[in-house]
Design a protein around this nucleic acid. Structure first.
Lengths: 266, 266
DNA sequence: CAGTGGTCTAGACCACGCG
DNA sequence: GCGTGGTCTAGACCACTGG
């Protein structure tokens, strides 16, 4: 981050008699400095001791005020350095054509192709492949019954070394077992290319989008500061017979992604 | 909420010598009780004084542990009553056909038709209509230049009295001024029906989806507890000439909504 | 080293809900 | 009235960063 703590921005005072708690008044003031641009992204907030001195409160109260802003995703703290206006990373737009066949035919997985075309360096790590009974929701989407198993592919996606997405794919064992789909490296074009080679020509995808706060493991794996929600995106791939051939459950930093879709007016 | 504080669930102890802070150990324990189902949605957590007694910490530390879970959206507190596992409301799925013409032709706005068909009671309030210069991003999407004005329609949507969505529509003044679009009640079928009557036959919509924590005003208007993010959805409507005729910027509780889309595999 | 944020204690007073 | 969570004080010690 940049800059020394900006104590010079502290002008307003708090009213201890107000209905509004003092820590909220302080948070409101700091939020105003941020939204007005007087504190730019990356800049340091006044230090806790500056807040204590200016507002005449204890450090606990000052800290609570800053914690409010952290919960809103406006501020991040760095131990031993200071608290900073959270910088907004470059947004990646995921278009509704990102799984078009022409991309697959170029021999690259959707993620790699898309990130490279933007001039960044894509990485995939923490790849594991197992065979498991899928969660109930996944089994339902795949049209599988009770004991049916799936090939489960987990991995983490990174852009320029920054983790951005955790993904888990479920492919019915009948389709994946013993093929390149069950290998860590699924080959050029990824598993969709393998499924098409098997005669499962892909027809459409259904995407279900939710947003929530991350679980602690997700926050760690994606290096998310507090106050940053995640997208949870469940995508089901259907072949031209209308059969579901894959479910992909992904958790993405909502900071980095914007999802773009087209809707017909019919 | 239901139930008295469940002090009987407190079994584990904390290790003050651990690297992991005590408040995190307590939060981990409580989180485990929630994810394992020993504390069901709606049930009361152990009270702060029970946490203090069991773990041998001060109330401040116990409160911080609970605050962690609030930030994760797992727990809500009610002043004078207790802290509860956050109940998950009924999810509403928004399908990609929700703006299909057949719905419009039934004479109902998309929201009203969709909520009534689910057996709930839709309401719209806080309706305001003004004429303003739109924000830069909206002007760009509408293909408008510098000083061009738009009719701005703001409103809040509620389901069974519960606010779920804040929406702001921008229509170029050239299309909306002096028509029913500039009236609080825009008539049967809503503004899309009015635009089509003017000869702007709708062809498609582009939706841009983001997620973030709500601003304080948004949290208040949607009655969001802490730890619940919002979807921000910007939808641009295009007519068959490829002209953008409306931009709708909506903020929705991520708790209540799941967005469903269809992608072609091409 | 001085300055920063992170954790924790031991209290106090208050506002709200409910019996 | 009593138990609940909400706010706030006045300290302490620690861990991390940077010059």
């Amino acid at each position: 981050m940049v800059g020394r703590p900006r104590g010079d921005l502290l002008t307003e005072v708090v009213d201890p008699a107000s209905d509004r708690p003092v820590f909220r008044q302080i948070a409101d003031h700091l939020r105003g400095l941020i939204s007005s641009g007087q504190l730019a992204p990356g800049e340091a907030l006044p230090s806790e001791s500056q807040l204590v001195g200016h507002y005449g409160v204890t450090r606990t109260t000052a800290r609570v005020a800053v914690a409010v802003l952290k919960g809103e995703g406006l501020v991040v703290s760095e131990h031993g350095k200071g608290s900073y206006v959270r910088p907004r990373p470059q947004v990646r737009r995921l278009g509704s054509d990102r799984f078009a066949r022409r991309h697959r035919e170029a021999g690259k997985a959707a993620f790699v192709a898309e990130v490279e075309s933007a001039g960044s360096k894509p990485t995939v790590d923490q790849i594991t492949v197992t065979e498991e009974r899928p969660p109930a929701g996944v089994a339902r989407r795949l049209g599988l019954t009770g004991r049916a198993k799936t090939v489960v592919r987990r991995r983490r996606y990174l852009i320029d070394g920054q983790p951005v997405e955790l993904a888990t794919s479920y492919i019915p064992a009948a389709l994946g077992r013993g093929t390149a789909i069950a290998e860590p490296n699924s080959g050029p074009g990824g598993i969709y290319a393998r499924l098409e080679e098997q005669g499962h020509r892909l027809d459409r995808f259904a995407e279900e989008v939710r947003a929530r706060m991350p679980l602690p493991e997700e926050a760690q794996a994606l290096r998310l500061p507090s106050g940053v929600p995640v997208f949870q995106l469940v995508r089901t791939a259907y072949d031209t017979d209308g059969e579901a051939v894959e479910v992909c459950d992904t958790v993405m930093s909502s900071d980095v992604y914007q999802l773009d879709y087209e809707l017909p007016a019919r």
